[in-house]
């Protein structure tokens, strides 16, 4: 009987430790401390890495810059249309994200091709049609190889030129970016469980006060 009471007390204590509030997503990427003077006082603040300005073209031949994503939460990845290995898995999973949020005008998906020579705008449009995506929720972005490779680093991704076997090596991550253009999550795009988490995290992020406030 005594043991039972101790057990009940321990269980109660454990349950008391559960937090009911939804936790905010972490902010990833490099941080730099910035010292500013606000109202005559010196304040040190943390500045998080953000995605720098860019200029690419989507499957409709529209120019897409960082301004096209102002006020939007978005997910980015890197692929190429003739990729025989992980890309079909990634985009089969990304379709789930697309279907979940395609009616939300404050959400976007951008997929950068790392093979701009083959993946021209018409090739990207054909791929989009065959994948079954329409409208402006999911943009397939074409650009100078150097620009794409450079921006991949801002997303903490590694892509590289063809190896001697003629294969492109690239990471298969989905990167979640908030309205302040900060990285809020990275997800293995080939793993259905991680993609389910991404969908949950997008919902959590959308509900954060500074995302609702941001225009």
């Amino acid at each position: 009987m005594r043991n039972l009471w101790i057990g009940i007390i321990i269980l109660t204590l454990f349950n008391a430790c559960k937090s009911n509030t939804k936790t905010a997503l972490p902010i990833l990427g490099y941080k730099t401390p910035v010292t500013k003077t606000v109202n005559g006082k010196t304040v040190t603040d943390t500045e998080y890495a953000t995605i720098p300005p860019f200029k690419f073209v989507n499957q409709y031949a529209d120019t897409i810059t960082e301004k096209s994503l102002d006020g939007k939460i978005y997910v980015a990845d890197f692929f190429f249309t003739t990729c025989p290995s992980i890309c079909p898995v990634m985009h089969r999973n990304m379709l789930k994200v697309y279907k979940e949020f395609k009616d939300d005008n404050n959400f976007r998906i951008i997929s950068h091709t790392i093979d701009p020579k083959y993946d021209t705008v018409p090739v990207l449009k054909r791929y989009a049609d065959k994948l079954g995506i329409a409208g402006n929720t999911w943009w397939l972005l074409h650009g100078e190889k150097g620009d794409t490779y450079k921006i991949s680093k801002s997303y903490l991704q590694s892509v590289s030129e063809k190896n001697p076997k003629g294969e492109y090596i690239h990471d298969g991550f989905f990167i979640l970016i908030d309205k302040q253009k900060r990285i809020r999550g990275t997800y293995e795009g080939t793993d259905p469980a991680e993609v389910t988490k991404l969908i949950t995290d997008i919902k959590t992020l959308k509900a954060e006060p500074d995302q609702i406030a941001a225009k």
């Binding site: 290995s85 079909p88 089969r92 994948l131």
Partner: peptide, 15 residues
């Protein structure tokens, strides 16, 4: 499996 899927479902009109 990468292309044809774990359930043989393919991928839209691509695969």
């Amino acid at each position: 499996q990468n292309c044809h899927g774990d359930k043989g479902q393919g991928l839209s009109s691509l695969i």
